[in-house]
């Protein structure tokens, strides 16, 4: 038994949490029917090998490259337009949902009054609803509404991503040092002023890196939505897969790689400017 002078009061909770995590993970593995042995059984391995061998060499004839360039531009446009629309909802929603700007929390050590917490719930609920429906489902819905094409993809990304961005923005606002904003509110400043002068300087790098990462995700999501007819690279990859044109698929995948690489570089560049 530990002697009282070396006992850490946090060790028992830590041990219990570790046990709980293991207890929760085990049934998860069973339920998802994860079985790595399937890779090594002869039949499925040769199936996958055949599928992959068609990928070489990547297609690079001029006509296909033109098509690829256009689809890439369309994908980037879908992701960017969707993100821009999402920000229009996410920024105000994040500000409303965050506790960081609560005036009633000032004399309470950071806990808003009960009515403040109650009023934040509808905003939180809205964001949960927006992001809980996957973007592909929204895309299917909008393809019915506005017809085949990129518009459906833009709307789907705008809706899902506004929920995700708003939630994470609200949490980033709460995770940075709260004292600057609280001091400004205590000196009579309004909430938005306190946000601009107290929280934004600390949160800017984090916000930017998360936004660029989400933009990268939006590029990928717009590809997935291409499969249901929302345009861009996704539609192209769908067509190529149906025609068993492995080389074209490989070219498209290389394009993805380059896009993600570019997003990563952009994020690094912007963060370096800000930190």
């Amino acid at each position: 038994m530990l002697k009282s002078d070396v006992r850490d009061p946090a060790s028992l909770p830590r041990l219990l949490i570790t046990l709980l995590v293991i207890l929760l993970l085990w049934p998860g593995i069973r339920l998802s029917e994860l079985d790595l042995g399937v890779f090594f059984s002869g039949e499925s391995a040769s199936e996958m090998g055949q599928f992959l061998s068609g990928f070489w060499p990547p297609a690079h004839d001029a006509e296909f490259l033109d098509l690829l360039a256009e689809a890439t531009l369309q994908t980037l446009a879908i992701a960017t337009a969707g993100m821009a629309l999402a920000l229009l909802i996410a920024v105000p929603a994040g500000l409303l949902a965050s506790r960081a700007l609560s005036l009633s929390a000032l004399p309470r050590g950071g806990r808003p009054a009960w009515w403040g917490r109650l009023l934040r719930w509808p905003v939180r609920g809205l964001m949960i609803f927006l992001r809980s429906v996957p973007e592909v489902v929204w895309a299917l819905l909008f393809v019915r509404g506005v017809g085949l094409g990129p518009t459906a993809g833009v709307l789907a990304i705008a809706i899902t991503y506004s929920g995700m961005l708003g939630k994470v923005y609200a949490e980033i606002f709460e995770s940075v040092d709260q004292r600057p904003a609280q001091a400004l509110m205590l000196a009579g400043g309004g909430r938005l002023e306190a946000f601009l002068y107290g929280i934004l300087p600390n949160a800017a790098a984090e916000l930017l890196s998360y936004t660029v990462y989400r933009w990268e995700c939006a590029v990928r999501a717009s590809v997935v939505m291409g499969f249901v007819g929302a345009g861009g690279l996704g539609q192209q990859i769908d067509l190529s897969l149906r025609m068993f044109a492995g080389g074209e698929v490989a070219s498209i995948l290389i394009t993805f790689l380059v896009l993600v690489l570019l997003a990563d570089l952009l994020s690094r560049l912007l963060r370096a400017r800000l930190t």
Binding site: R179, P180, L274
Partner: peptide
């Protein structure tokens, strides 16, 4: 304030 609450990058 005793420790001035100023954002480091401001």
């Amino acid at each position: 304030h005793q420790t001035p609450p100023l954002p480091p990058r401001q």
